Deep mutational scan, measured.
Amino acid sequence: NITNLCPFDEVFNATRFASVYAWNRKRISNCVADYSVLYNLAPFFTFKCYGVSPTKLNDLCFTNVYADSFVIRGDEVRQIAPGQTGNIADYNYKLPDDFTGCVIAWNSNKLDSKVSGNYNYLYRLFRKSNLKPFERDISTEIYQAGNKPCNGVAGFNCYFPLRSYSFRPTYGVGHQPYRVVVLSFELLHAPATVCGPKKST
């Protein structure tokens, strides 16, 4: 009989979030998941669920729940959905087409922007091929755009693959930082360890 609440607040209220290319994953298990708490945590810009209804979450049980978190800019949030393409979905964080879970995003301009520009958040701009779903690539190998090998040196047709967002508070919403948490629900042929409040007794 599990009584402890799932530590969603640790994920959502973390002081620092990860850069999207090096997104963070927390496995959540053996706890009571009260998803209604999430609705009250922040004024969400996005709370979209796929393959599951957000209002039914509190009635369900899962084997595992994974919470992935990272920062992107406002106009990239739409890429965090099944079947999307674009720089983020292709080279940084890719959801599977049959994704079961929820994408939660909110504006973090007050936390993640600086007047002089916050350069701490990076994204991958160049990659030889698209990522597979939930693949994480943290390599910093020089990207070869031409025929000549780069031998690890940046220059003509040889690019450092990561680029930094420079978040400034005066930017338009599309270029402001957004914190994203992706909850993916895993149903294996194994005992369910993460249940809503109704199912945990």
Rank of each mutant, 00 (worst) to 15 (best):
V52K: 07
V103N: 01
P82F: 02
K114R: 13
S113A: 11
Y93G: 00
G155Q: 10
K94S: 06
I80L: 07
V182L: 02
C102W: 04
G146L: 02
H175S: 02
N13M: 10
T170V: 02
P133S: 07
S116G: 15
I142D: 00
N147K: 06
K114S: 11
I88P: 01
A22Y: 09
P169M: 04
A42P: 15
H189R: 13
R127P: 00
C158V: 01
F47K: 10
F17C: 03
N13L: 12
I72Q: 01
T201Y: 14
K199M: 14
L57A: 08
V71C: 05
V103C: 01
F12Q: 05
G74Q: 04
V20N: 02
Y66E: 07
K148G: 08
G172R: 02
V103G: 01
L188K: 15
S36T: 14
I138E: 13
K48P: 00
F44S: 15
N30A: 09
F8R: 04
A89G: 05
P43I: 08
A22T: 08
V71W: 01
A89N: 04
R168G: 00
P43Q: 11
R163F: 15
P149W: 07
R163S: 15
C6G: 06
I138W: 06
N130V: 14
Y178R: 04
D98E: 11
W106H: 03
Y143E: 01
G155C: 04
S166K: 06
G83I: 05
D59H: 13
G146A: 06
D98N: 15
L111H: 11
A14T: 08
F160N: 14
L187D: 13
S53Y: 09
V11M: 08
K198T: 14
Q79A: 05
L5N: 13
Y165M: 02
A89Y: 04
S29A: 12
T3Y: 10
F47A: 11
N13C: 07
F8S: 04
L122D: 07
A42E: 11
A89E: 00
P191K: 14
S164W: 06
F134H: 10
T55S: 15
G146P: 01
V181H: 03
K26C: 07
P82A: 03
L188G: 15
K94V: 03
N24V: 09
V180Q: 01
